[in-house]
Amino acid sequence: MAVHKGRGFSCINYPIGMNLGGDPSQALVHSTPDGKFMVTLSAIDLGQGMKQVSRQIAAETLGVPIEDVYVDTADSDTGPHDMGSFASRGTHRVGNAVIQAAREARSVMLDAAAEELEVSAADLETDGKGNIHVKGAPSRTIAVADTAIAAQFRQGRTISGRGIFLIPMSDVDPDTGEMTPVSCFAHAAVVLDLQVDDETGEVEVLEVNSAYEVGRALNPKMVEQQLIGGAWMGISHALFETTEPHYPNRDYGATDFNHYLMPGPGQVVPHHIAVLERPAEDAPYGGKGPGEMCANPLLPAVTNAVYNAVGVRIDALPVTPEKILRGIKANGGARPQGQSWEV
């Protein structure tokens, strides 16, 4: 009996956000009297970094320090409407809504500052450090905090903004079947190395190398984090996760998540990632976001690598030892295309 090495390749064109149903996101931005800003969303951070990225986008658009921006995603009853955190839409859809809301709030903020400084709002700019000053005359300045106080207590203005991002629903052309279901695409390619034991059918992943094009990486460290974690979710889907099969029948099946296998820390392998940045025109500051794409290409990469290792083509996930052994048996033995060694 032998162990066979296999290498699998896959690539993906990944749609960021579907507009089959219109798919809107809303955002509200308002300042507090001390010159901080609150971004209110109903989009939810599942750990992927929605809050952080929304905060960065709001701070960049408002022209204020990121420390002065808070993101509240607490309650979909009190927040503005959002379709939700799915379809890899968060950065793109919510980010665009945040930009629109922050632009409106910034415009009111500059109007308020203009009134205090007795200049035209068009002549003002922000320094990103909490101050607003006259272009070319930095000494003519007012703090964002003082602007907020003036707006609130003297001018009677609300420094606030509303944002919505909506791509109209795309209908299918009845003649051609043509439609525009998505607004932008991200891309990735994955090379995965693994080995298959032809006696036990067990698969051991050895190394992953990948390249992802996610538009601008708005937060490079979080992009990397999501790509590494997402790749393991993909490998987990490919090799472990199922509620089936169970022997001899369904009565012996899983009753809870404890029987729903997933990789542990001992199965971590090196994953080398190259992130390519090609900012998308309609994306917030060019960021499309990695989204589900970080998991998807790993599945075909695994099945292709298994085929390369033992010549078994598996088209129903997960790739269990049983399926591999049945495939090897049906083929009359392993048909390795790569390196093999006796064990």
Partner: peptide
């Protein structure tokens, strides 16, 4: 068990 990180950053 960790669902999100792929363990690597934790290690």
């Amino acid at each position: 068990v960790c669902r999100c990180t792929g363990y690597e950053p934790i290690i």
